[in-house]
Computed example of a mutant assay.
Amino acid sequence: MSEVAVADRPVTDSLVTVFGGSGFLGRYVVRALAKRGYRIRVPVRRPDLAGFLQPLGYVGQIQVMQANVRFPASVLAAAAGSECVINLVGVLAPSGRQSFDAVHAFGAKAIAMAATEAGAGLVHVSAIGADAESEVAYARTKGEGEAAARAAVPNATIVRPSIVFGPEDQFFNRFAALSRFTPALPLIGGGHTRFQPVFVGDVAAAIQRLVEGKGVPGATYELGGPEVRTFRELMELMLHEIGSKRLLVDLPFGVADFQARFLEMLPKPLLTRDQVAMLRSDNVVSEAAIAEGRTLTGLGIAPASLASVLPSYLWRFRKAGQFTRVET
C-alpha cells in the first residue's frame, strides 16, 4: 500500500471494494479501513440508503455505488481497479429474490470472479458451521460460497465468525425487544446450544488486518469472543443487563420446527426452520483453528468480553433507560 501524507490525514492510492458495506458488520469494516487511509468503494442495491457511510471517512474517501450481486456485470464494474475485494453479503432469512442460493452461492461466485478480473485479493466472510454438504440451506449455501471464492481466488482468505454482537445486532437487540411484550422467552432445544459471541468491532479489526496482509493467505479464520456461553446463559445475561425478569421456557426442537413453518411466512420472520436446524449444533471456534492461530488472538487482537460491551447499548431496553440501576 503506497502512502503519502496530506496534513495529518493518512492518504493512500489503494482501493478496497466492500460488498455488503452498508450492513451491520459492513459499517464497522468501512470505518476501520477509512481510519487506515484506504479509499473505499461500497457497492449496494440502494445507494440512496447508504449515505450514512460517507461521514465515516474524509471527503471523497468513501464512494457508494449501485450494484447487485445477482447481476455479475454490475459486480465486475464495482470491483474494477481494486487492490482487495471484501465480501460481507449475506442474509439470515430469504426474502423475495434475495434467496440463500442467490446471495450466498451465486453472489459469492460473482464477487470472486470480479476480484479475479480486477487482479485483487479477496476476503470472504462466511460463518462458523458453513458446510457445502449440509442439509441446512443457510450452512450449505455458505459452504458453496466459500468453495466458489477459493475456486476463483485460491489465496482468498475465509473469515468465519460466531454470532456477532454490537449496538445494531439482530441477536441481543431482538430478544431484548421481544422481552418487552412477552412474559416468557423460548429456549429452543432447551437452550443448550453453545455460542462464542464476538464483538463486531473485533471482527472488523480482523478483516482490516487481513486486507493489510497480516494473515496467512488462503487460510480460514474462525472468530469468537473470549467466552463460550449456552443459549440459556446468553438469555439470562441479556435479561440481567436490561433489568427484566422473564420466564425461560424449554421448547423442544420438534415443536420449534413446527412453529417455524408458520413464522417464516411473515414479512420479517421471527423464526425459520433453518434457524431451528442450526441450533442443533454448537457455534464455537474449533480446536484446530485455536491450535493453528487462525483466530482473533492469532491476528494480535484481544477480543472484547460481553460484559464490557452489552451495557453500552442494551440500557435502552431498561425501564428507566440509562438511569436504571443494574446489580452487578
Rank of each mutant, 00 (worst) to 15 (best):
313 Y>W: 15
313 Y>H: 11
300 G>P: 13
306 L>S: 11
303 P>H: 05
312 S>D: 13
313 Y>Q: 14
323 F>S: 13
324 T>E: 07
311 P>W: 09
306 L>D: 07
322 Q>E: 12
313 Y>M: 14
322 Q>K: 15
323 F>A: 15
316 R>A: 09
301 I>L: 13
308 S>M: 04
324 T>V: 06
299 L>F: 02
315 W>N: 01
323 F>Q: 15
316 R>T: 11
309 V>S: 02
299 L>Q: 01
316 R>W: 03
303 P>D: 03
327 E>T: 15
319 K>M: 02
308 S>N: 02
321 G>R: 06
321 G>M: 08
301 I>M: 12
298 G>Q: 05
307 A>F: 06
316 R>L: 06
301 I>Y: 05
303 P>E: 04
309 V>N: 05
326 V>Y: 09
327 E>P: 01
319 K>W: 00
301 I>A: 11
325 R>G: 05
317 F>A: 01
317 F>Y: 15
315 W>M: 01
316 R>S: 12
299 L>I: 02
302 A>R: 08
302 A>I: 07
315 W>K: 06
324 T>L: 08
307 A>K: 11
324 T>D: 13
321 G>A: 12
313 Y>N: 12
310 L>M: 09
300 G>L: 15
323 F>K: 14
318 R>E: 01
321 G>N: 10
315 W>Q: 06
322 Q>T: 04
314 L>K: 07
314 L>H: 13
298 G>Y: 09
304 A>G: 00
303 P>Y: 02
315 W>E: 03
321 G>W: 08
305 S>Y: 00
320 A>Q: 05
300 G>V: 14
311 P>N: 11
319 K>L: 04
302 A>P: 00
314 L>A: 11
312 S>P: 04
307 A>V: 12
318 R>M: 02
325 R>T: 15
324 T>R: 05
308 S>F: 06
305 S>H: 01
309 V>A: 08
311 P>A: 12
324 T>H: 03
314 L>T: 10
321 G>T: 06
303 P>I: 05
302 A>Q: 10
324 T>G: 09
298 G>A: 06
301 I>D: 10
326 V>C: 11
323 F>P: 00
303 P>A: 03
312 S>G: 08
326 V>Q: 04
307 A>N: 13
312 S>H: 10
310 L>P: 00
320 A>T: 03
325 R>N: 13
298 G>V: 05
316 R>F: 08
317 F>I: 01
314 L>C: 12
311 P>S: 10
326 V>S: 10
325 R>L: 14
327 E>N: 14
324 T>K: 08
307 A>L: 10
317 F>M: 03
316 R>I: 14
326 V>D: 07
310 L>I: 13
302 A>V: 13
326 V>R: 11
310 L>H: 07
304 A>H: 03
312 S>M: 07
303 P>W: 02
299 L>R: 01
322 Q>R: 14
305 S>N: 04
326 V>L: 11
300 G>D: 14
314 L>E: 12
321 G>E: 08
307 A>R: 13
303 P>G: 03
319 K>C: 00
315 W>R: 00
